[in-house]
């Protein structure tokens, strides 16, 4: 399962909407071994295409080194599909080179709603996983809940289940 903060999902969706109809892409870094995405890094789509995305190789080197220096890893690698469903294409699968990453796809084909799905892609095998979007909790804020109210968490089950 991918568990990710609402504010990060909002930023990813905003990026995808901004670049629509071109595909948008980026990374969410997190502490190595934590499986927790914490730092959103929008990347340029060097291909600037409606059907293809590609990280700029020099930007990628800079970002990957920065993650290394901060003892982070790419927890989420995301991109948008702008006219089709949020499911990895054959091209996505053949390029998938980070076996530890969650591959997040956002479809912006509908103007008002986004389809958000997450996949593991290891050795050419695609496995969908549920996405849990967690509302940001400020540890310094005083929390008070009405009886029967719970913190806002939205679970997206896999679409094929």
């Amino acid at each position: 399962m991918l568990s990710i903060d609402r504010s990060i999902i909002d930023a990813i969706v905003a990026h995808a909407r901004r670049d629509h109809p071109d595909e948008a892409c980026g990374v969410v870094a997190g502490p190595a071994g934590s499986d927790t995405p914490t730092r959103h890094i929008p990347m340029d789509n060097a291909a600037r295409s409606m059907t293809f995305y590609e990280f700029d190789s020099m930007e990628q080197l800079r970002v990957w080194r920065e993650m290394d220096d901060r003892d982070e890893e790419p927890v989420v690698i995301y991109h948008s599909h702008t006219a089709t469903e949020a499911y990895p294409s054959r091209t996505d699968v053949s390029f998938a080179g980070e076996p530890g990453a969650h591959y997040l796809l956002v479809s912006t084909r509908e103007p008002d709603t986004e389809e958000i799905r997450s996949f593991r892609i290891v050795d050419g095998v695609v496995t969908e996983e549920p996405v849990e979007i967690v509302a940001a909790v400020d540890p310094h804020a005083v929390q008070s809940y009405m009886f029967g109210q719970s913190p806002a968490t939205v679970d997206y089950e896999c679409s094929d289940r």
Partner: peptide, 23 residues
């Protein structure tokens, strides 16, 4: 020397192949 996996992909296989060839 640094080796990184290229991060790329996209919606359509055939169009992507053309983009790769162009690139």
């Amino acid at each position: 020397v640094t080796i990184l996996p290229a991060v790329a992909g996209g919606a359509f296989g055939f169009a992507a192949a053309a983009a790769i060839a162009q690139h």
